[in-house]
Computed example of a mutant assay.
Amino acid sequence: MNAINAFNSHVSDFQFSHVLDFQFVSLSDFQFFAVIKIFTSTNATSLEVLAINGNNFGGLLPECISNLSTTLRRLFVGENNIVGTTPSGILNPINLEELSMWNNRFSGKIPSDIGKLQRLQSMRLHINNLSGKIPHSLGNLSMLLKLYLGDNNLQGNIPSSLGNCQSLLILNLSTNNLSGTIPPQVFGLSSLSNIGLYLSSNHFTGPLHMEVGNLKNLGEFDISKNMLTGEIPGSLGSCVSLESLYMQGNFLQVTIPSSFGSLRGLKELDLFRNNLLGKNPDFLCVSTHCNF
């Protein structure tokens, strides 16, 4: 694979007219206008990976990002200080498999037609200032493995269409302003693995659906710091891969189901700041760190 790593270089030292055959471009210690030159280059027809992450780039992400070739598979702009809204042109490289824009200062809404990136496997938009609703079109991303939208200002409900993302290994929506009930379709994502399901620090209400028992491969489940009510469903005892379960800071009527005895691998259980009823079962606290 042809590549350029522009570490400790100056933009004047590199002739952008020669990027025709490059497949991988990684920039460090460049000024942001160097990135704009790459975005507007009409010769980068073989570019597959563009990485400008981990710098101190500021300013807006230019609209001319739409000129990137459809051969682009991975775009990394995370860990910078880029501001403004997400340009609609970010969706033009329709063969993107990985989109990483995390830890910037992006604001505004996630593009409503983000679902056109149907080859996308990983989307990292966490730790920004994004607002608005989670687009319904995310449900079109049937190949999606990892979805990180945490630490933003997203509002509204979780779209039930996320239940179509049957390949998801991790879903992180924590630390937003999401509300409503957690749709049962989320608990139908049996592909969720030991990486986890993170819904903490939102405004979710209502009870947990019995469908949560479908998450038999889930290793970490965090629904803490919401406004959930009702009882803990006994079906949670079917989540036999659980190692960490965080439910603290809700309004749950907590009688720990006897089915929790099946959670042999559970190492962390936090039910603090709920309405605990009954006696704490001895079978849990023998091998599990419990906080009631």
Rank of each mutant, 00 (worst) to 15 (best):
T288H: 07
I94V: 10
E243W: 10
G219T: 10
N250S: 05
G58Q: 05
C239E: 06
N194E: 13
L271W: 00
V49A: 10
N5L: 14
T205L: 15
Q23E: 15
F33K: 12
R119G: 10
I65S: 00
S191A: 03
I38G: 02
N172W: 12
C290T: 09
T205G: 13
N194V: 15
V77L: 12
G265L: 09
F260H: 05
M123P: 04
L266H: 06
G54A: 08
L242S: 03
S69V: 02
I134S: 01
N128C: 09
N176R: 06
S26Q: 14
S137M: 08
N202F: 03
M1I: 13
P135M: 14
E97N: 13
I36M: 11
P159W: 02
L276R: 04
G230D: 07
F221V: 05
P111Y: 07
Y246V: 10
N67M: 07
N226E: 13
L169V: 06
L173N: 01
G196T: 06
S287F: 06
N217R: 08
G139L: 11
R105N: 12
L218E: 00
N53W: 09
S179G: 12
R264M: 07
G139R: 14
L208V: 05
G54V: 08
L144I: 13
G278T: 15
T45N: 09
S174V: 00
S107N: 11
I158Q: 05
D222H: 15
S200L: 01
R74T: 07
N274C: 11
T86G: 01
F30C: 08
E98T: 06
D270G: 14
A3R: 15
L154R: 14
T205D: 11
C239H: 03
V11G: 02
